[in-house]
Amino acid sequence: MKQKFFIVAFLFVAGFSVVNAQFHDSKMPLTTQHKTGVDKIFSNVYSGLLNGDVSRITKYIKSDVSLNLKSGISDYFSPSQAYYVLKDFFKKYHLIELKILTTKKTTDFPYASGTAKYKSSGLSGNLQVFYSLKKINGGWTIAQLTMN
């Protein structure tokens, strides 16, 4: 009897965890997004890129995002994929300098572009950086991020 109870309890807990993980995506804090302006998003993305702080960037990725990276990555990624792809990227490439030369905030696709210097395995180089936002469900999400 105890054994049966244990199995049922275990299955329930496992099932709950599975459901929780699945529903995780649907519990997005959109209210925060509505209040966040483009400025704040750009500022956070800038810091995230410079410090390799992926969470700071990916909290603004709410749908498929186009990533074009120096490491050869060039595709659309889901939000959860984007996190690990960027994490992998920043493990190899560290930005030592980031200059945003152009920003346009008043269009349907606000964007910022500039240049960056990086170091990777003792080698250094330059990157062209671009990121743009789009509106989904009334909130901003990063549509594109290029570091190439």
Partner: peptide, 9 residues
């Protein structure tokens, strides 16, 4: 992770 990744678990 570019080929597959999920934030599950």
């Amino acid at each position: 992770p570019a080929y597959f990744s999920s934030s599950f678990a």
